[in-house]
């Protein structure tokens, strides 16, 4: 004979607890924390490198970057002059809240305006893990196809805004922006969409302005 013990516990309870603590900590520190997810090769690092450079002129910025192997991305980002930390996840396909907490510990007492978390290039696994961020951005490049959001609805649905990257290639690949927006609208109605090219600077001022408008100090 068996009997049922009702429990109702989140399977990722541990991660959720840490994420909640991080979010509280970020609020106290008055940091705006942005995480970025995308498939590999969508231009996260390039965009982040430019972003750190542009924001770095006026703000205190730092970035944590997750990668399966190599520290190349951190080296690229560090060239912007910002503080950068690499999390090498080995075989793990996503970042978890505890990994972020460990990585940013050395910065706990340093004032920061922006903290960026670049997740491992993957549009599936990161969807399940809250990292305590204030805002989750999902990136996809014009070369990936307009229907990407409908292929990965869960990650798009958990995100707060979409950034379409590599706009300099839009014409060459005949990127259909209304189709891309329609695809986003199906999986996350009303989501904000930004367009950038880190290469030609197209859309970068608007992107930087968007980030600034989310700083705790600019929110009344």
């Amino acid at each position: 004979m068996t009997r049922l013990v009702e429990v109702r516990t989140q399977i990722l309870k541990q991660n959720d607890v840490v994420a909640r603590e991080l979010r509280k900590q970020f609020a106290e520190q008055r940091r705006f924390v942005v995480s970025m997810v995308s498939s590999p090769g969508s231009g996260k690092t390039q965009l982040l490198q430019q972003t750190l450079q542009l924001l770095g002129e006026r703000y205190r910025v730092a970035a944590v970057v997750g990668d399966l192997a190599t520290e190349n991305d951190a080296a690229r980002l560090a060239s912007s002059g910002a503080m950068v930390k690499q999390i090498t996840t080995g075989t793990l396909c996503h970042l978890e809240a505890e990994m972020v907490r460990e990585a940013i510990k050395p910065w706990d007492d340093i004032p920061l305006d922006f903290l960026f978390i670049e997740n491992v290039g993957n549009l599936v696994c990161p969807a399940s893990y809250d990292l305590g961020e204030n805002c989750r951005l999902v990136l996809f490049s014009v070369t990936e196809g307009e229907d990407k959001p409908r292929k990965y609805p869960t990650i798009f649905n958990t995100a707060d805004a979409t950034v379409i990257t590599k706009m300099d290639l839009a014409e060459a690949v005949e990127f259909d922006d209304p189709a891309a927006r329609a695809s986003i609208e199906r999986v996350r109605p009303g989501m904000e969409v930004l367009h950038v090219s880190a290469k030609t600077n197209e859309g970068m001022p608007a992107w930087i302005h968007w980030l600034e408008s989310h700083l705790p100090a600019s929110i009344p």
Binding site: T2, V5, V7, R8
Partner: peptide, 21 residues
């Protein structure tokens, strides 16, 4: 009608443990 408000479908939880009585 389009609706952006998901009210169910994100569940990933243990609902019960079946134990030996």
């Amino acid at each position: 009608t389009v609706s952006g408000r998901i009210v169910g479908g994100r569940e990933m939880e243990i609902s019960a443990l079946e134990v030996k009585d």
